[in-house]
């Protein structure tokens, strides 16, 4: 029989707390390290991390999929025309 909501919460609460603390400690480690703050501010991955944290802090039904998409390059439905694959027969 699958676990209830309460059972799942109890089972994974400490693991979730641990992972959030890990994320916090990594951000602290980056902040503490010597080097140029400006360089990091311009790194697009910092923006991705911020957006992922915003998703976690909001009410959602599918956190994992939404965060995966934040870290993904976009899909262009017209990619085959742009690649012109018709001209590539061996």
């Amino acid at each position: 029989m699958p676990l209830t909501k309460k059972e799942v919460f109890e089972r994974y609460f400490l693991e979730l707390r641990c992972k959030l603390l890990d994320a916090a400690a990594i951000l602290d480690r980056i902040r503490r390290a010597p080097g140029d703050d400006e360089q990091l501010r311009n790194d697009p991955r910092i923006g991705q991390l911020r957006r992922a944290l915003e998703v976690l802090a909001s009410e959602r039904t599918n956190y994992a999929e939404e965060i995966q998409l934040i870290f993904s390059r976009p899909y262009d439905p017209d990619w085959q025309q742009k690649f012109d694959l018709s001209a590539t027969n061996p």
Binding site: Q68, L69, F71, S72, R73, P74, Y75, D76, P77, W79, Q80
Partner: peptide, 18 residues
């Protein structure tokens, strides 16, 4: 892998469907 997965998977499915 990673940031290329979503785009690449959609492209692969397009090619198989074709």
């Amino acid at each position: 892998h990673l940031e290329d997965k979503y785009q690449g998977t959609r492209m692969i499915l397009d090619m198989l469907r074709g």
